[in-house]
Design a protein around this nucleic acid. Structure first.
Lengths: 221, 221
DNA sequence: TGGGTCCCATGCGACTCCTGATCGTCGAGG
DNA sequence: CCTCGACGATCAGGAGTCGCATGGGACCCA
């Protein structure tokens, strides 16, 4: 599951990102409305957390623009203080839920989970397909063609992270940050070890090495 | 199935909790409106029983706030005496049903079941079939092939949660969260114990362990 | 008081994960 | 075109974690 946080308060944004990453989500953060809109329209997010008070373009506008462009990604609005949020306007522009600051972290996580759950109940499938590779993130199962591959938890997490960014180059540092603990201080070699295992269990040419930069999951066959 | 009771009369709240627990629900109780709202927004309840006369925040307000935040959990209102309840207002704020005190316990249980059933009717049937496993969540009965299995309340609740998300990996934390009540702070080993019991009473390969992630109820092959 | 459910504790067994070392490969610059 | 250095791939083994089974105690209801 991939989340986008659009929030200009950097401390808050960072702490949310940290926590949600620990929950197992792939999290991107941007700090202004314009960039938020760009990212949300170009990348496949499962949920957007959107502050209302933003430089560039405010949250309502971002939300409305997204809906106008036909994106139905769930949107969770954040409001700076009680009363600022105009509920009618929020619902009009197409937000799915909102939270009033200050809120506790557990509340946020609960809302995020609830929205994703609601989405899933509506029939959205968490299955990613690239060529003959099929990854079901909810079932934690992987197929290569007809055959199912048996992956360990870590192997699956690494693959999931690559799949969520299929076609992009993902650095080892990025993989370490998302799959391992934030404060992990180990050898980046560990990533190589897992990529190696994935190539062995799946197919060698599925994950391309980009020397000096990282890895890229091949999309087109 | 997890229920929240928001009721300041402690004797009543306690007796309802006791009865509903015996029915196999995981029940949490809070005594004022503010905390009720907090809980209902942060924990994944399947139904909320909400008194109108409450300290802190009255029932209408709690209900309206829940709906405004996008939560569609079924809500059963309790009114202190005939005439106090303004049906129009109750329905406006988004309650699904109401009961006028005094009411009998069996009536309450019937309404609770009806609401949960209605919820299901909107989507899935109360009977789930996966291979030769048949689970009737309304009657709380389980068959394996022709033979009915005798499960305890907790065993059934665990199975029910797995069945509702058949094919997906469900973490132990998630099972704990949904099957046990808020006050429970036990270790995840208890989930292992119940899964073990289910495998023994049903069939070992029905619930698959996904090491490091959780359990998955196997769907059709 | 007795049967049953529920929860906890312990020990064992199996698997996963990481470390460190060695080997292989790429590419820049001479 | 060759050499060298840096980066990446692979392998094996031990430590640690995770999951399972089992037995016993607390509690509840008949």
């Amino acid at each position: 599951m991939r989340l986008l946080i659009v929030e200009d308060e950097k401390r808050l944004a960072l702490s949310l990102a940290k926590g949600l990453t620990a929950e197992g989500y792939a999290v991107d953060v941007v700090h202004d409305g314009r960039e938020g809109l760009d990212r949300a329209t170009t990348e496949p997010y499962d949920l957007v957390i959107l502050d209302i008070m933003l430089p560039g373009l405010n949250g309502y506008r971002v939300c409305a623009a997204l809906r106008a462009a036909g994106h139905d990604v769930p949107i969770l609005m954040l409001t700076a203080k009680d009363g600022e949020y105009d509920e009618a306007e929020g619902l009009d522009t197409g937000a799915d839920d909102y939270l009033t600051k200050p809120f506790s972290y557990v509340v946020l996580v609960a809302r995020v989970k609830a929205l994703l759950r609601r989405r899933r109940a509506a029939g959205a499938s968490p299955v990613h397909v690239h060529g003959d590779l099929k990854v079901d993130t909810a079932a934690r199962r992987v197929w290569l063609g007809e055959e199912e591959a048996e992956l360990t938890a870590k192997e699956f997490s690494v693959l999931e992270h690559l799949v969520l960014r299929a076609g992009e180059v993902v650095s080892k540092a990025d993989i370490l940050e998302h799959v391992w603990d934030f404060a992990y201080e180990g050898d980046p070699n560990i990533v190589e070890v897992y990529v190696s295992a994935l190539r062995r269990k799946l197919r060698a040419d599925l994950i391309r090495t980009v020397r000096g930069a990282g890895y890229r999951l091949e999309t087109a066959p």
